[in-house]
Amino acid sequence: MNKTLDMKQVVKNNGVLIVFFIICIGLSFLSPYFFTLNNILNIFRQTSIYGVIAVGMTFVILTGGIDLSVGSILALSGMICAGLMKNNGVNAFAASLIAILVGGGLGLVNGLLITLGKIAPFVVTLGMVTIARGLTLIYSKGYPVSGFSSSFREIGGGYFLGIPIPAIIFVITVVIAWYILNHTRLGRYTYAIGGNEETVTLSGINVKFYKTMVYVIVGIASGLSALILTSRLNSAEAIAGQGYELDVIAAVVIGGTSLSGGRGTIIGTLIGALLIGVINNGMNLLGISPYFQQVVKGCLIIGAVILDRLRDETN
């Protein structure tokens, strides 16, 4: 009896991981191309663009917040990076650094409005969606900026030891985020704030500072993602990143992070992001219409939350 109970527990606690493996095994049978090194690396590369942001978003959602403006921040950071390189002759390294700073800066604005302005994260970042998008259009006058140096194109298209560089960036981001969440004050406070903000305040912790920081982190992640996307497309467009917030939040939620905060893991987000990547990739390989893919993604999000609920009720 104990054995079966344990099996149930295992299934419930690792539901998404098991679903992930089942889908992978299924796709391997359905498409001979799916389980090839090439395709796996391809999935990682495709996933990295929103996966990197999802890593940052995990921090925000762990505090019980939300950031809807990641797609717009991505567009503005990417456009400024492209503009600096093409119009001002700034070198790729400096322009990339500035793009990340722009992302972090916009995140800081979000964070300060939320903590000092005491406005709900949903409202602040909803405003930032159109502000950053508008700034991108003003800066670019609506035209795309294309054609970059070969060194910049390496970020999105290059390989290191046969592994796509975006995949490496994604994995490194995951490792750093895991370390921060588990081994630094910032990480532990992130969980604590999501668990009970008032208790954390009364424990003498500067909640406003740490809450602001999580928006800076997701901003930086958006800037980083902007580099990968801009480099990969060899072009920055004002409409870049539109709707990304949905994939990003979906990855985090599918990964088991609670939208009310306090509970979740970075490994969960990694699996959540890869699961979305695998499903997109698999359905493309099988020739399923992209319209249908949207339906599947939606079901996945709801299914993941149901799985989560089941786990809560048994524990």
Binding site: R188, Y191, N196, E198, V200, S203, I205
Partner: peptide
């Protein structure tokens, strides 16, 4: 509401106010 984080462990709750001293 103000003293504990109910969804976190005994350890994490007890450690909350001293993380700044030990980092």
């Amino acid at each position: 509401q103000q003293g504990l984080i109910l969804g976190m462990s005994v350890f994490d709750n007890a450690a909350l106010a001293v993380l700044d001293l030990y980092s």
